[in-house]
Amino acid sequence: MRLLEALERVRGRIVDVHSHVGSDQRFLLDGSPGRIVQVMDRYGIGVSLVSSTHSLLADFREGNRLALEAVREHPGRLLGLVAVNPHYGEEALEELRRYVGAGFVGVKLHPNYFKISVLDELTLRVLEEAERVGVPAMIHSYDGGVEVSRLAELFPDLTIVMYHMGGARWREGVERVRRFDNVYAEVSSSVADAGMVEAAVEALGYERVLFGTDMPYLDPAVSLGKVLGADISWEAKEAILCYNAEEVIGPRLREL
């Protein structure tokens, strides 16, 4: 099937589990909510899960406020992920509870930006809270899945999404989390090595592979090209692009 024809078949049904609102002037990238939704329309992405770049780069609380504003501006298109900096202890936990209460569907952790290990006592408290309130943890992973696999052992009942599949070490990433049914691999990253989606599907089964874009850093063409270009069945491609996210997010997606 031709590429654009394939994209047309899933138009409007694609769920992007990894995106951001907010710009990053270090790279001249514009990620205003309006721009993100415009790009979603262009590629046929129905729903994106967003945290704010502001949460990563400046202030997680202000970032969450901006993400909430974006979600309210674009109902049915954007769903919120609450980003918390574990160094803030109880305040971070309170933030998590508040935004999950407001309808956010997951917690976003970026240990590198916050200069903390996901295995640090403070991070573990955040993850315990995520498990308690029943939302998945989306974790930036560029270390070949080392930290995510340790977490998966500690939290067998918490749904964990390994963002970037472990980065340039994606092969190690998917192998490390192979045995943990509670871990999903998300395909976005600049890394577009041929064979990476096939390897994830082989290791985890297509049901545990998720589509994400990492806007505004990356263009959706990158992740779409990986999934649509992979040598896997159409059923697998459609599940990765459109259906698997529901297993992670739950009925909120059906309500949109």
Binding site: L3, L4, L7, R42, Y43, A192, D193, A194, D219, A221, V222, L224, G225, K226, L228, G229, A230
Partner: peptide, 17 residues
């Protein structure tokens, strides 16, 4: 495209879209 190191479909979509 950096083919065969990378998926060529990524670059094709970048330009077509």
């Amino acid at each position: 495209t950096a083919y065969p190191l990378m998926y060529p479909e990524c670059s094709v979509l970048k330009v077509l879209m």
